[in-house]
Design a protein around this nucleic acid. Structure first.
Lengths: 138, 138
DNA sequence: TTAGAGTCTCCCTACAAGTGGAGAGTCAAC
DNA sequence: GTTGACTCTCCACTTGTAGGGAGACTCTAA
């Protein structure tokens, strides 16, 4: 027989210690609505639930996958509405892959241009007063 | 026989029109020291030389190649000292390729992770109260 | 001489995701 | 009861590259 331990609320410093995130960051997340506090102590201290730790792990994971805090918040909305957020997360991750592909494409083109430029680079070009850099011709 | 036209100084609006850059941007560049004015009119108007147009073309080119304004300024420093800046530009462009390669590498790894994640994504996972998203297990 | 266009400086705003600090209030242990 | 750690709010600042606007001043053409 398992007896559930009573719900224990965490002050921000304890949450910071256990999550590894700075207090400032937690306040910032709370302000954004990303990490709701369960309430306040009589003295006005933010109180968080143990659930907040899971939520922070989730936020970290999606951040590591390249989502913005706003996108993460969109993923959390269905969860907070009592639904499974998997579908929304999947959509965000698909979009993220598209963004990554676009970015890789852009960087690849830029790299090609830079390589081509450097490939024909003259180490001792003739000075040309019509341009600043003869190699670039601008 | 070619007669050189007298040096004509440009007010900021004229430089903006001829370079295609907004006045605000030119003031910003001047403030950064990227685009020195040759002086001021008696009324305090910035005066630029025709040379500024070439300088702006150079700045645009390096910006298009992904350099920051600060890096561009480093490239212009030897030019302003009367030297050919090609070597310094070459160094910056090499560094830029390295940065691009690093970035592409990072993005590629992230893409692989995202693909793997989505590849095994369950569209209707069992709800698991220990995590927010069963697919992510966080 | 006057009207209108151009320009000046100065300050605020934006994005993203926080960080730093001041000054005041709260909590827990001794 | 006191002390020291913790937390609060509020404000400013960061990076990079500008954009917007107010209010004052200047220049040019008719």
């Amino acid at each position: 027989m398992v007896i559930a331990s009573p719900p224990h609320s965490l002050k921000i410093g304890e949450l910071a210690a256990r999550s590894g995130l700075p207090v400032k960051t937690l306040r910032y997340y709370e302000e954004l609505g990303l990490l709701p506090a369960v309430g306040r102590s009589p003295g006005g201290y933010r109180l968080f639930s143990e659930e907040s730790l899971r939520r922070l792990a989730f936020i970290r994971r999606l951040k590591a996958l390249g989502l913005t805090l706003e996108e993460i918040q969109e993923c959390l909305a269905p969860h907070d509405a009592g639904l499974l957020p998997c579908h929304d997360i999947q959509l965000q991750l698909c979009r993220q892959i598209e963004r990554i592909d676009e970015r890789i494409e852009e960087l690849g083109l830029l790299r090609i241009e830079l390589q081509a430029l450097l490939g024909s680079w003259q180490s001792d070009p003739l000075k040309d007063d019509a341009v600043i850099c003869p190699n670039l011709q601008v």
